[in-house]
């Protein structure tokens, strides 16, 4: 296929697949734990970390990563022990991180195309080093989810029971937030700071509409995440539109399609026929 003859397109496809799998998996927990504002908050506050990287002449993606993870842990800790509502804490850090970023960037003269890419995403500019970074992050986060899936589900559904069962609920919650922060970072590579929260919400929200069981929801979420990524990238290649925006629009299209009367029921019925009893 013509589209695959370019190295940058091959890397872009790999990036979209990996980000699709990772974001969709995390979006399952984001939707069920009502953490969508957390995703948006971390993505925007991360600007502060990226600006630190620019000032230090380090890779803004790496400093942004450290900043995002520390911030997620701080938000989690403050909302648990600071007697404050989670959304209040996120709202404060969201604005503070952005303000820090804007201030630091204004201190340094010049034009920074890499910053523009991180704000709006540029999957076509993904380097081999970015792909390696993405693969490492994806492996680490998916391993955490894989090993602690049943515990994360229990803590999410009924934390009181989880604690009574002796599960380290705070550590699991902070681990989930750190995973969310890492996922935000890699989604920034593909769709940018501004749109990254969409990939952390739409796939699982769509999967939820078609499912009566979490297994189906998780599987559908991953399928929708990867499909919208591939469709958006192909569309952007043929029609010369920004790839990040095209990916988010395809995901949104599937989501709004789920509101067509009877469609969720028909798809769920077809799914039941394929995987009897799993919905």
């Amino acid at each position: 296929m013509e589209i695959f003859q370019y190295g940058f397109m091959q890397r872009a496809f790999w990036a979209v697949i990996m980000v699709g799998v990772l974001c969709s998996t995390l979006s399952f927990f984001t939707v069920l734990n009502r953490l969508s504002f957390m995703g948006a908050g971390i993505a925007h506050a991360m600007l502060g970390g990226m600006a630190i990287g620019l000032l230090m002449e380090a890779n803004p993606l790496y400093t942004g990563t450290v900043f995002a993870v520390l911030l997620s842990l701080l938000i989690g800790y403050t909302s648990r022990y600071g007697k404050m509502q989670e959304d209040t804490v996120i709202g404060i850090f969201f604005a503070t991180g952005m303000a820090l970023g804007i201030t630091l960037i204004s201190l340094k003269e010049g034009y920074y195309p890499e910053l523009f890419s991180l704000l709006f995403g540029n999957v076509l500019a993904v380097s081999a080093r970015d792909l390696l970074f993405l693969a490492v992050v994806m492996t680490a986060v998916l391993l955490f989810i894989f090993f602690f899936f049943k515990e994360l589900l229990t803590v999410s559904f009924d934390e009181e029971l989880a604690r009574a069962n002796g599960l380290p609920s705070t550590a699991l919650y902070l681990g989930l937030l750190a995973s969310l922060a890492l996922t935000v970072v890699v989604s920034v590579i593909v769709v940018g700071v501004v749109l990254s929260s969409a990939l952390l919400v739409i796939p699982a929200a769509t999967g939820y509409r078609f499912s009566r069981n979490y297994r189906t929801m998780l599987l559908l979420s991953v399928v929708i995440g990867v499909l919208s990524g591939l469709a958006g990238l192909t569309f952007s290649y043929h029609y010369d539109v920004p790839s990040g925006a095209a990916i988010v629009l395809f995901a949104a299209l599937i989501f709004f399609g789920s509101f067509i009367p009877f469609l969720p029921g028909k798809i769920a019925g077809a799914w039941r026929k394929i995987f009897r009893g799993s919905t």
Binding site: L32, K150, T154, F157, N165, G166, L167, R212, T216, M217
Partner: peptide, 18 residues
Amino acid sequence: FPLSTLDVVAMGGFTRSF
């Protein structure tokens, strides 16, 4: 939460030992 009755009941056995 999209959980079946069995899923909810099984959570009772997810303790620190596991």
